[in-house]
Every structure is written in C-alpha cells, then in structure tokens.
Simulated assay, not measured.
Amino acid sequence: MVEQVTLYRAPTAAADADAIADWVAGRVDAEVDVRDRFLSQYADDDLPEELADGRVLDPYDRETGNTMLGIVRYEERAIENPERAGGVIYDGLELQRLLHRRLPDAARSLDHLHVVLLDRVVGTWGDHDGRWHKRVNVLGHPAIVSVPGLYEAPAKPEQYYKEQQKHALLTGDSPPREVLENEVEGDFLVEDDPRTTDALKGYVLQAYHYLETGEAFCDEASCRLHNPHRQPGVVEAQLRAPDFCPRHAERYR
C-alpha cells in the first residue's frame, strides 16, 4: 500500500506542483508532499553522460545515445540551467531507471511513490510499429510525468499542423495559441497552456493508481485515469466533468 507520495517540481514548466499535490491528497489515503526539482537534488557527475546515452536519435531506430563531448556538455548545462533544455526526446524507461538509481536507499520502498514532473520529452519504443512514441507519463517507480509531453504526445487535429506550417512559412515563427484556436476546430492543449495544471492532476493520480492497484489505465474516455492518444480525448478525460467513471469515482471520491 502506498503511504507517501512525493511530487517533484518542474520549475521551468507551467505546472503548479502544489496545486496538483493538494488535489491528489484529497483523493488518496497517503501523505502527499512536494519537493524541488529532482535533477537539482540528485544530479551527480555521471548523470550528464547517462542522459546523453538515453537520447532518442532517430524515431525509427531502437538504439539510443550520443555521448560525444559536446552532447554531454549540453546535458551538464541543461541540468544547471533547465530553461536551456529542449528539442530532445529521451528513452522514458531508461530515464526512469537512472532516476531510480539516484533515489536514497531509504526512499526506494514501494510504499513511497515518487512522481517526477519533468520539463523534458520522453518516449517509449513501440515494438508493434517499430518507432518511438512520445508519452505524457511513464508509470512505475519513480513515475515520470512529462509536462511538454502533455502538449506533444497526444495528436492534435490535422488542421492544427496545417495552420502551424502555413503560419511558419509566412512569419518564420509559431502562431500564437489564439490564432490556432480560432482557425482549428476541436479542443487541444498547447505549450504553457493555462489548463496545464488541471490536466496533469489525472496523470499524477494514474501513477498512484498503478502502484496501488497494478492497473495501468481506465478504458472509460471520461475518466481521469484514461490515457487518450489524441488531444480532444485529453480535454474530455482531464478537463471536463465528471472527473471519474463510476468505478473509480467510488474509489477517489
């Protein structure tokens, strides 16, 4: 049984860890606390090279890693200055392993769930189609919740990408959120979306639910424990009533 949940902040991301923790604490029978950024607390001399070794280099190549000196130096700078990180996908399972190794021995028990809010994009390899897939979260111990993954992993409406390309050709820049919302039908989240914190609450609860019950996700599209592959599904599951399907509403009030 999970007795304690520790949530780690992602200071460069539009995610309020304290608000997420308060929401989760009202629904689980565990103590919930918030700590500062995981990589700031537990980084060591080996971490930059291990991060470089976990980089996805090609969306269709299972092999990862580039430990050339310049890449390792980039990872060193990104640990020190997280606002400089970006544009890289990491093997989520490998990242989970290297974060687990850095947990203090006393904190590794399965009754203490660690959830790392991360300002980096993570992915998992799909054996069924031979390519990497971006993910919002990687369940396990510790669990990873990727804030940029919330915007990038679930697919947006096709028209979104067309409007984005059109705007980029004309201006050389990404269009403002308001422009895309006006031009594209359907609801979706974009970088630094003000709904980020609310949307991530369910993904953090999924980490607790998995460690507590062994159940990964809920099949009901209207439940916060659902894991949709498209942005409109994220909006339905995380931002619209009801919060839970009847089965999980009974458990999580």
Rank of each mutant, 00 (worst) to 15 (best):
235 V>R: 13
14 A>T: 13
52 A>K: 03
122 V>I: 15
94 E>M: 05
210 Y>Q: 12
106 A>Y: 15
133 H>A: 05
47 L>W: 04
216 A>Q: 13
1 M>C: 07
49 E>R: 05
235 V>K: 14
224 R>W: 12
145 V>S: 02
192 D>V: 06
36 D>F: 08
30 A>P: 07
33 D>G: 03
187 D>E: 13
53 D>G: 11
15 A>D: 02
13 A>F: 02
17 A>P: 00
140 G>L: 07
2 V>A: 08
219 D>T: 07
209 H>W: 07
11 P>Q: 09
121 V>H: 14
103 L>K: 03
10 A>E: 07
66 N>L: 07
252 Y>S: 00
69 L>Y: 13
149 G>R: 05
244 F>A: 01
45 D>L: 13
230 R>Q: 06
10 A>Y: 07
41 Q>K: 13
92 G>R: 08
27 R>H: 10
25 A>L: 02
55 R>N: 05
76 E>I: 06
237 A>V: 04
173 D>K: 15
197 T>G: 10
40 S>A: 13
76 E>T: 12
136 V>Q: 02
1 M>Y: 11
83 E>S: 10
47 L>F: 02
245 C>D: 06
145 V>Q: 01
233 G>C: 03
71 I>G: 01
161 Y>N: 14
173 D>N: 14
166 K>E: 13
91 D>Y: 02
227 N>I: 00
199 A>W: 00
235 V>H: 10
38 F>R: 02
140 G>P: 11
35 R>D: 09
175 P>Q: 05
20 I>L: 08
82 P>E: 03
80 E>W: 04
21 A>N: 06
129 D>G: 04
209 H>A: 05
155 A>G: 14
54 G>N: 06
116 V>L: 05
222 S>C: 04
56 V>C: 12
161 Y>E: 14
100 H>I: 03
